[in-house]
Design a protein around this nucleic acid. Structure first.
Lengths: 121, 121
DNA sequence: TAACTCGGTATCCAAAGCATACCGTCACGG
DNA sequence: CCGTGACGGTATGCTTTGGATACCGAGTTA
């Protein structure tokens, strides 16, 4: 398959940029074990604002990674869940997340060292 | 290890956001096989602007993922290469990149479907 | 009828990213 | 000795994305 993320016009470039979008990883991870409602996702991912969460969810839905179900009840109930496609992305992303959680000390150490070095200009 | 990316204050959150930064994946991938010079990286990653590349390189250097060597020659020669830490991130990231390259058609199809649906409001 | 819940918008501001032009140093060719 | 070019970036100005906070509409409950 002739896709190559390094090419400026390659569609895989777009896809990779989308995955890298600030909150994608967090949302997909939040939905790993069960469908969740808007407020539940927002609570789970501490610090995300409703506007950004809405945008992220819409994008993921358009890309076919999550499905949105509006039960049209009242008070409103809307659930988001991973699609098969979205679930297939979980494993690669989990590896990255685990790497992040494992290597925090090394990165903090590197930052500490860099902070005491004279600025390069 | 008590790190959890979902916590607002957790350092792993910062690390994960940094990995997800727009160009990190591309730069690390570019350096996979050998050290490269600034212009080589810029050529390899089509479409990145020099300003953004500079910022990305500085951040990666601060985080200890790449090393910068200035040979102080003339014309200037500066090489960037992965550190051991940076190299350890390659494998998780490669999985994500491959996923992106593999699932382009599905995502394009999902977008095509979404484009013909009436707007939800 | 007033308060509450939920799933968002509206508004405004800050930060990140992009396009383009330009710079300083030195080597080299003429 | 002067112009040209390579390299590794900066400078500038703009657009896009992200963030904080307030608010809304519908229906249910008290």
């Amino acid at each position: 398959m002739g896709y190559n993320v390094m090419s400026r016009t390659c569609p895989s470039r777009v896809v990779l940029h989308r995955i890298g979008a600030r909150w994608t990883v967090f949302v997909l991870n939040a939905l790993e074990h069960q469908p969740l409602r808007f407020v539940q996702i927002k609570t789970h991912i501490q610090g995300i604002t409703p506007k950004v969460l809405t945008e992220t969810l819409r994008t993921l839905e358009r890309d076919g990674l999550i499905a949105r179900t509006d039960f049209e009840e009242n008070p409103p109930r809307v659930e988001y869940e991973l699609t098969v496609l979205g679930r297939s992305l979980l494993e690669p992303l989990r590896a990255v997340r685990l790497w992040a959680e494992e290597h925090v000390p090394e990165i903090q150490a590197a930052n500490a060292v860099a902070a005491m070095e004279p600025d390069r200009r």
